[in-house]
Each structure stands twice: as structure tokens, then as C-alpha cells.
Simulated scan of single mutants.
Amino acid sequence: MFRRSLAAVASAGLILLTGCAGDELADDPAAEEDTGATAGGPVSISGQSFPEAALVTEMYVALLEDAGYSPSVNLVDTRDVYMQQFPGDIDLVPEYVGGLVDYLNRDGEESLTTPDAEETIENAQPLLEEQGIALLEPSEATDTNAFFVTQEYAEENDLSTLSDLEGMTVTLAAAPDCEGRPDCAGGLEDVYGIDVEKILPLGFASQQTYQSVIDGESQLGLTATTDGTLESQGLVLLEDDQDIQPAQNLVPAVSTEFLDTNTDLPTILEPLMAALTTEKLTELNGRVAVDREQPADVARDFLVEEGLLEE
């Protein structure tokens, strides 16, 4: 089920009532146009331009084209950029639950995010409605911050979870904004009791971050749970066993105004959300990042394999 405001539900109900007015009305193209309900047409998509987001966007595009829509896509560097036009000029964004909610609540006094996607969405529902954004059903697949070490370092220190690092001193290779954040260095120190002696601002899942850990300059590096490149580099994730990461489940975010007149979107995109898992997404990311396959090809292969698209 998808979530939207009472006004959106009322609008959808009006569409259904109008559609049942009689055979003459149903057969009248002008009358059908008056209901505001559409099946297909232009849809503007934006989002972030990192490889996973590009891959999921290609899935959206393939499914929407198959349903008769004409998608236009503009991926950008950061959420700050596309949120200036969403909702509005942008109709649809492949999003992450916690990231979007944290952005919308950036001036809030209390956090709305939790490790549970449904709870986070429920907490944020008044804010989402105020902003004119509807979230469809989120996926089981989640992409949160994660921390990795070399396989050798994990074996030497008997590490499998972040709790295993308690009391140890490490250098962390991470994004520049990691310091003090509860889902990054702050959480490692305050929740896990890890002594983060130094943070090297080498980037999120960047080649420089990987290499710093591989070379032993850093013991710990920052990436995502769906990083498909780790195994090929001799790197392993440590489990976030005390849940410092908010829910970052994949979720389609839609302008409520656009959803009101394109009520078939959930039937197009929610089966994709149901088919994706974190493990599958990690494998697909690896095909793009390691095997250098094109995102559009990987996306179509997955959709066909899952029975969501015909060959």
C-alpha cells in the first residue's frame, strides 16, 4: 500500500466514482479526460548520480516506459539540488527512507528516523503531507552506512561486528562530514566505545578510502551495505550490531499532485520494491562497479529475471 494525504485519497475516490458513472461516460474520451486520471504521459525523474541510484533509476525508466510513460531523467550530485524542484518540476525520485526524512526534518528539534522503515515513515507522515510528497511501499533492500576492514585485519583481531572493536584505537577513512555524526564517527565512539583517533576525509566508498584501508594507513573505512566491490578487494563489512544506522530502505518518492492523476504508479513500482533485497542489490551493484556492465543492461536483466518485464 502507498501513503498519501487524505486529500489524495479523496481525489482517488472521486476518480473511481466518476469512472463508474455509466457506459456512456466511460466511452466518452472527453469525459475520461475530465477525471484527471491518466495512464502514461511525461514523468520527470531526478535523484543522486552515484552508481546504485543510476541503476535503480534505470529500473524505474524501463517499467514506466513499458506502462506507456515517457520518462525524462536528470541525476545530480546531491539531494540538496533536486529537492529544490521536488515536488514541482520533478515528479518522482528513487529515494532512501532515512535520507529523505532527515533532509525534510533538518530544522526539527527531534530526529524522526529509526532503524525501522515503517516507524520512520509513520513519524514523518505529517511532514511528508505538508511537503506534498507521498512514499510508496518501501523495499526490503536497504543501503545504510557501513564500515569495513581488510579480511586480514578482521582475522587477526577476531572481528565480525563493530562491537568487537570496543576499546580499540583506529584511524577512519570516511566522508568529510563523518565527524560527530551519530551514524558515523559519533556513533562509533559514543555507542560502540571505539577510539577514533583520526578521521581521514577521503570520501564515501571512494577509491582513496579503499586504498587507505588496504595499505594500512586506516584500519576502518566508510562505505554502504550494498557495496559490491568489497570481496574483490579483500575487504569485509563489520555488522552494525547495535543499530546506529537509521532505516535507509529504497522507496519511490512521488509528488502527491502527480500521484493523484497517475494512480497506477504503485502497481508499476511497488512490485519492483518487493523484488529487491539488499543481497540482490549488492550483486547488481557489483555487476556495474566491478564487471563494468551498463546500468541499463543490468536493470533490464533483473526486471526480466523477476518477471516484471518481458524480454
Rank of each mutant, 00 (worst) to 15 (best):
P115W: 00
L237T: 08
L127E: 11
L284M: 12
V254Y: 14
L55I: 01
V61C: 05
V254T: 13
L165C: 01
L100F: 05
S44T: 15
G307T: 07
S206H: 02
R292T: 07
G132M: 08
E155A: 15
E310F: 11
S111Y: 08
A174P: 04
A53F: 00
G193D: 04
M273S: 15
D164H: 09
V304C: 07
P271F: 04
I45N: 02
E293T: 09
S139Y: 09
P29M: 12
V196G: 03
N262L: 10
L112H: 11
R106K: 15
L259E: 06
E217Q: 09
R3G: 12
E257W: 14
G68M: 06
N285L: 00
I45T: 01
T256E: 15
T35F: 09
T261H: 15
D260G: 15
N249I: 03
A253L: 13
L281Y: 11
V73L: 01
R3I: 11
A299T: 04
F86I: 07
I15W: 13
G286Y: 07
T35H: 08
E65S: 06
E217M: 06
L104S: 08
A12Y: 04
S111C: 03
D227Q: 00
D143Y: 06
I199A: 12
L14W: 08
T277G: 05
I214K: 05
V251H: 02
D195N: 10
L235W: 11
L136D: 07
V251L: 15
Y153H: 14
G36E: 09
P51E: 03
Q245P: 09
Q207D: 08
V93D: 06
A185V: 10
F86E: 06
L200S: 07
D27M: 11
D34I: 13
L17A: 15
I194N: 00
L281S: 11
E156R: 12
L159D: 05
S212Q: 07
